[in-house]
């Protein structure tokens, strides 16, 4: 269309489409029929029921490149998060991906944050670069390997939580951060969790189940000690080992709404104070988008997957 558009510039065009592992995955995704990528199947029901005609495939796995002092890791989507974190832990680092089983790609596609999101950051902020296979079977790259990056439209943000309905995640660059020197959980059954949350400067987690308040403090030993002292003013906290992870249906509420959690039909619950995530026995009532926002969603899907072949039957946000 234009002489100086750079459309013929082969120097970068070959950059990320020659990796044989990605090429192979692109061929596996193909160009026509319905296809879904399975990770660890730990959240397989997310987004609703998969169209039974869809082919289920696996993304490639393995850590591609890890330079601790860059605080980034390049990893293939099919890699289990546990495997990734074991590798990073050897260098004293971790990521914002949730440690509840499953793969890197699955965690990003679902977009669920770790219980310690206040300490380690959100999944959406952790993803720096994404390589996915498009509905046309093409390898597409979005974002870049640096934390700061404003280079065009932010495809990585679009992919987080999209349940693979816009592209099949193949390889990502995820931001890492140091594992704190000390991580200590505290438990009290007589605390006001909201007062506890306010009392300490930077808790990594405050979990409330209607009776018990669990608080995770992380950082330098002196900082943890100081905050533990502040915490003590809000309840009779005792040190406990890491609790088992909350399970159940995942609700997403504005943090202020947790003060009225009793008015919601959750059944047994674990709520993340200051965040708004609730794991509950019962599912969150269906929410809807405004017609105008839904229209943008529909156009986005049309743009990225006009034939509806990616993860058919599933919709982001449904059945968490």
């Amino acid at each position: 269309m234009s002489g100086d558009s750079g459309s013929g510039d082969s120097s970068s065009a070959t950059l990320h489409s020659t990796d044989p592992v990605l090429r192979e995955f692109a061929e596996l995704v193909g160009e026509t029929d319905g296809v879904a990528v399975a990770g660890g199947r730990t959240r397989w029901s997310a987004g609703g029921e998969l169209d039974s005609a869809a082919r289920v495939i696996q993304a490639p796995s393995g850590i591609v490149d890890y330079v601790p002092e860059e605080m980034i890791v390049t990893v293939r989507a099919g890699t289990p998060v546990a495997e990734l974190h074991a590798e990073l832990a050897a260098k004293g680092q971790r990521t914002g991906l949730p440690e509840r089983g499953g793969t890197v790609g699955g965690a990003l596609a679902v977009g669920e944050n770790d219980v310690t999101v206040l300490g380690r950051g959100t999944v959406r902020s952790a993803l720096l670069q994404v390589r996915y296979v498009s509905s046309e079977g093409r390898i597409v790259n979005g974002g870049g390997p640096t934390v700061k990056n404003v280079t065009g439209f932010d495809l990585p943000r679009l992919m987080v939580g999209s349940l693979g309905t816009l592209g099949c995640l193949a390889e990502v660059i995820v931001r890492t951060n140091p594992i704190p020197t000390v991580s200590q959980w505290y438990l009290a059954s007589d605390a006001d969790p909201f007062a506890s949350y306010q009392a300490v400067m930077a808790p990594s987690a405050v979990v409330y189940d209607g009776t018990n308040t669990l608080v995770l403090l992380e950082g330098h030993a002196v900082d943890v000690d100081q905050q533990a002292g502040e915490l003590a003013a809000t309840g009779s906290f005792v040190e406990v080992g890491p609790p088992s992870l909350p399970t159940g249906h995942r609700w997403s509420l504005p943090p202020a709404e947790l003060k009225k959690i009793a008015t919601h039909d959750t059944g047994a619950f674990n709520a993340l104070v200051g965040v708004g995530t609730v794991w509950a026995a019962k599912p969150q009532p269906a929410r809807t988008l405004s017609p105008e926002v839904q229209a943008v969603h529909d156009r986005m899907k049309m743009q990225f997957d006009p034939t509806g072949r990616l993860n058919p039957g599933r919709k982001p946000g449904v059945n968490r």
């Binding site: 977009g111 669920e112 944050n113 999101v117 959100t122 959406r124 404003v150 439209f153 932010d154 943000r157 679009l158 987080v160 939580g161 999209s162 816009l166 995942r250 997403s252 509420l253 504005p254 943090p255 202020a256 709404e257 993340l272 965040v275 708004g276 995530t277 929410r287 809807t288 988008l289 405004s290 105008e292 926002v293 839904q294 229209a295 943008v296 969603h297 986005m300 982001p316 946000g317 968490r320």
Partner: peptide, 24 residues
Amino acid sequence: DVLQLGGLDPEPLGLDLRGVFVGS
């Protein structure tokens, strides 16, 4: 059209259109 993108909750419904809008 007036669009509300994102939300005060941690995982707003649907695609992260707020994330896409920022930096556009």
